[in-house]
Design a protein around this nucleic acid. Structure first.
Length: 442
RNA sequence: GACCCUAUCGUCCAGUGGCCUAGGACACUCCCCUUUCACGGGAGUAACACGGGUUCGAAUCCCGUUAGGGUCACCA
C-alpha cells in the first residue's frame, strides 16, 4: 500500500490497436489516475521482424485519441527506460544469467533455453477474479516454457516479467487471456527472488454474437473510430462501461466522475459483448450535449475533406441547425453542404413530389413576394408570415412549406425550415426561390 | 484432450438470502410532440442456462450438467 502505484500497458506493435487492448489500457489508466499512480507505456517488440514505425504510431495515435496520456514511455521518457523491449537486450541478458546461475534453465538440442517449472499447486490471488488455484501437479504435458530462442532472441513471458520487475510495476492489469500464464509468471518472479506484483485479469471483449473479435470485425480497430466520425469522449465513456459499472444506473459520465468512482472490485468477471449500436448512441448523446466550439472542432476535419471551410461565425449557426440529428461526424458535410454553395443539387424525388405539383411554383412566387417585404428575417417572423399567407389564400401551410424546402435546399428533408431561412438570410433565400422557379418552370 | 474463467432481457449493466410479480440503458414495436428528418416525452415486447442440494425463504450459497470463452507456441 505504501509503494506508489505503477501500472503499464504493454502492447505489441502489430499494426492496429484492438478495442480489447484499448480497453485494457483505459482500465490501467483509470486505475492509475484514481490512485494518483503512474501509467507507463512499454512497447513489446521482441519480434523484431514485425516492428515498424507505422505500427508504433498507430498505438500512440489510438491512446492519445482516447485521452490516455502515459507518464513514462516512448516520446515521454522516464527513469526506467528504454521503453522498447528491442532496446533492453543487456537487461534481459543479466536476468537470464541470474536464472541460469540459479539452475532454473536448461538447453534443448535446438539451442532454445527453457525455464524449469515446478509441478505444484500455484495460487493466484487475482484482484478481479479472486483466488484461483492452478494444479500443475499431474499435468501430462510439460509446463516448462521456452524463454529464449536458438537465435538469442527473447520470448514474451520472460521479457514481460523482467520488464515489469525492472520498471517496478505494482499492478498488472491485463486481458483474461493471460490468466492461465500467470502461475508461470509467478514462478519466474520467485526464481528471480522477487515478489510478484498484484494481478488483475480483465474479461475479454467479444463480438455481439459472442465470437472472438478479430481485426476485421466492426469496431475492433481503434482506427475505425478515428475514421468513423466518433467523438473520443463518447467512445471512451462507452468503453468504460464494457466490463465496469458504477453500480448505479449512471451511463453518461464525465471523465472526472469515472476516475473518482473507478474501482477494480467493480470490474466484471464476465466477458463483454461489443455492441456498436450502443456506442453510436453514446456518440449521438455526446454530440447533442457538446459545446459549439468542440462540435465545430470535431466536425471541421470532415468539412475540410468535403471542401467546405468557413470562419466560426459562419459555421456555427449552420452546424447548430443539424446538431441534434448527427450520430457520426462523417454525416455533417452532407447535411450542411447546400449552405455553402449556390450550385446545390436537387433530389429528383423531392422535385417530383414538391415542385411538379400544380401551383407549387406559384406558391414559391407568392412566398417570395411576402418575404421580400420583410424587414426582420428571423425564424419566428418567417413562420408567422408563411402561415398568415396560407390562411389568406385558404391553402394549407404545407403547400408552401414543401416547395420552399426543396427550393432552398434541393431536398425533402433537412433542418427546421424557418431556422434554415434565417441562417441562409433573406437575399439567398429569395435568390434560391427565384432560381428554382426559373429552372423548373413548365 | 488437460487446466482455468464465466453463465440475469438480443446487447451492456443493476441485483451479494426476504425490499424481485427481477430494475436501468441500447436496439425493436406503438403512441404523443412535429405539416420534413431528427431530438424529446410516454407505453410495450423481452431474462435469472438446466438439474440437484442448503435454508422458513434463493437470481443471490454449494455440487453436478450443459454452453461459451481462455491457456497449454522457439506469437505477444
Amino acid at each position: 500500500m505504501s509503494a506508489p502505484i505503477r501500472v503499464r500497458f504493454a502492447p505489441s506493435p502489430t499494426g492496429y490497436l484492438h478495442v480489447g487492448g484499448a480497453r485494457t489500457a483505459l482500465f490501467n489508466w483509470l486505475f492509475a489516475r484514481h490512485h494518483g499512480g503512474k501509467f507507463i507505456l512499454r512497447i513489446e517488440d521482441t519480434d523484431r521482424a514485425r516492428h515498424s514505425e507505422d505500427a508504433v504510431q498507430i498505438i500512440y495515435d489510438g491512446l492519445r485519441w482516447l485521452g490516455l496520456d502515459w507518464d513514462e514511455g516512448p516520446e515521454i521518457g522516464g527513469d526506467y527506460g528504454p521503453y522498447f523491449q528491442s532496446e533492453r537486450e543487456s537487461i534481459y541478458q543479466r536476468y537470464f544469467d541470474q536464472l541460469r546461475a540459479g539452475g532454473h534453465l536448461y538447453v534443448e538440442d535446438s539451442g532454445a533455453w527453457r525455464f524449469r517449472f515446478h509441478r505444484e499447486l500455484v495460487e493466484v490471488d487475482d484482484l478481479i477474479c479472486g483466488k484461483i488455484t492452478f494444479d500443475f501437479g499431474n499435468t501430462e504435458i510439460s509446463p516448462d516454457m521456452t524463454i529464449r530462442r536458438p537465435d538469442g532472441s527473447w520470448i514474451f513471458h520472460f521479457v514481460n516479467v523482467v520488464d515489469d520487475l525492472e520498471m517496478k510495476i505494482t499492478h498488472v492489469l491485463r486481458g483474461e487471456d493471460h490468466l492461465s500464464n500467470t502461475p508461470k509468471h509467478i514462478q519466474l518472479y520467485q526464481a528471480l527472488n522477487a515478489a510478484p506484483p498484484r494481478f488483475g485479469h480483465i474479461p475479454l471483449i467479444l463480438n455481439k454474437d459472442g465470437s472472438k473479435m478479430s481485426k476485421r470485425d466492426q469496431g475492433a480497430s481503434i482506427t475505425s473510430y478515428l475514421e468513423g466520425g466518433y467523438a473520443p469522449e463518447a467512445v471512451r465513456n462507452y468503453f468504460c462501461l464494457l466490463g465496469w459499472s458504477p453500480k448505479d444506473d449512471r451511463e453518461i459520465m464525465a471523465l472526472d466522475e469515472i476516475i473518482t468512482r473507478f474501482e477494480l472490485s467493480n470490474v466484471n468477471r464476465k466477458g463483454a459483448h461489443f455492441d456498436i449500436a450502443k456506442c453510436d448512441w453514446f456518440n449521438a448523446q455526446y454530440i447533442q450535449q457538446m459545446p459549439a466550439a468542440r462540435y465545430r472542432e470535431l466536425a471541421q476535419p470532415w468539412l475540410a475533406k468535403a471542401g467546405i471551410s468557413a470562419d466560426p461565425a459562419t459555421l456555427d449557426p449552420v452546424l447548430a441547425l443539424e446538431k441534434m440529428k448527427v450520430t457520426h461526424f462523417r454525416e455533417v458535410p452532407d447535411r450542411v453542404s447546400f449552405f455553402f454553395t449556390e450550385d446545390y443539387t436537387y433530389d429528383p424525388a423531392a422535385v417530383e413530389k414538391a415542385l411538379h405539383k400544380p401551383g407549387a411554383l406559384d406558391r414559391l412566387a407568392q412566398l417570395a413576394e411576402c418575404y421580400a417585404a420583410l424587414e426582420a428575417f428571423d425564424a419566428v417572423t418567417l413562420e408567422a408570415k408563411l402561415k398568415e399567407l396560407a390562411t389568406s389564400l385558404s391553402v394549407k401551410p404545407a403547400e408552401f412549406i414543401h416547395p420552399a424546402r426543396v427550393a432552398v435546399s434541393g431536398r425533402a428533408v433537412g433542418p427546421s425550415l424557418y431556422h434554415m431561412f434565417e441562417v441562409l438570410g433573406k437575399e439567398r433565400v429569395l435568390a434560391r426561390f427565384h432560381r428554382t422557379r426559373e429552372r423548373f418552370a413548365a
